[in-house]
Amino acid sequence: MSKTKIDGVAAEFFSAFDNRGGKAADVDRVRRLIVPGGVLIKAGPEFTVYTVEEFIEPRQQLLVQGRLVNFNEWETAERTETVGAIASRFSEYRKSGILDGEPFEGGGTKTMQFVLTSDGWRIAAVSWCDRP
């Protein structure tokens, strides 16, 4: 049962910025999925630590200004381990869209740390590393 719930939270996170077919992305979903004080970390050459708001702001601007369209990001593989009220998930993912008129595709690895709260499973931290 826990795995099914965690799968659902992960899928919601991956789809939060989906704006394919002209639909509006639901970036507020990220605020609901991540616990207060949660962190998002971009690893790699441009190492950056974000609060939830710092993570959402530039992405929302890309979407609102219409610079990023037909965007989609999805898991291609995952491994989840749960111990009591904590869980860790490693995901491989792909993404595609059109940024500033140019089509792009990419992917990488994400890790998500989950905690079981009174409201169900929520994300405590996300780290990712994109591959070119």
Rank of each mutant, 00 (worst) to 15 (best):
V39P: 04
V39G: 03
L40K: 03
L40I: 09
I41H: 06
K42I: 09
A43S: 06
A43M: 12
G44D: 01
E46H: 14
E46R: 12
E46P: 08
F47H: 08
F47V: 11
F47T: 04
T48L: 15
T48M: 15
V49G: 12
V49N: 04
Y50E: 02
T51V: 08
V52P: 04
V52E: 01
V52G: 06
V52A: 06
V52D: 04
V52Q: 04
E53K: 08
E53I: 11
E53P: 01
E54V: 07
F55M: 06
F55Y: 07
F55R: 01
E57S: 10
E57M: 11
E57P: 04
P58T: 02
R59V: 07
R59Y: 07
R59M: 02
Q60C: 10
Q60M: 08
Q60L: 14
Q61M: 12
Q61W: 13
Q61L: 10
L62D: 02
L62R: 06
L63I: 12
L63F: 13
L63D: 03
V64A: 14
Q65D: 10
Q65C: 12
G66I: 01
G66D: 02
L68S: 00
L68K: 00
V69G: 02
V69F: 15
V69W: 05
N70P: 06
N70W: 09
N70H: 09
N72G: 12
N72P: 03
N72I: 15
N72W: 15
N72H: 15
E73N: 09
E73R: 13
E73G: 13
E73I: 12
W74A: 15
T76F: 14
T76H: 10
A77C: 08
E78R: 14
E78Q: 13
E78L: 13
E78C: 14
E78F: 15
R79H: 07
T80V: 12
E81Q: 09
T82I: 14
T82A: 14
T82G: 09
V83T: 03
V83A: 11
G84V: 11
A85C: 05
I86D: 00
A87D: 00
A87L: 02
S88E: 01
R89L: 08
R89I: 01
R89E: 01
R89G: 02
F90T: 03
F90K: 04
F90R: 05
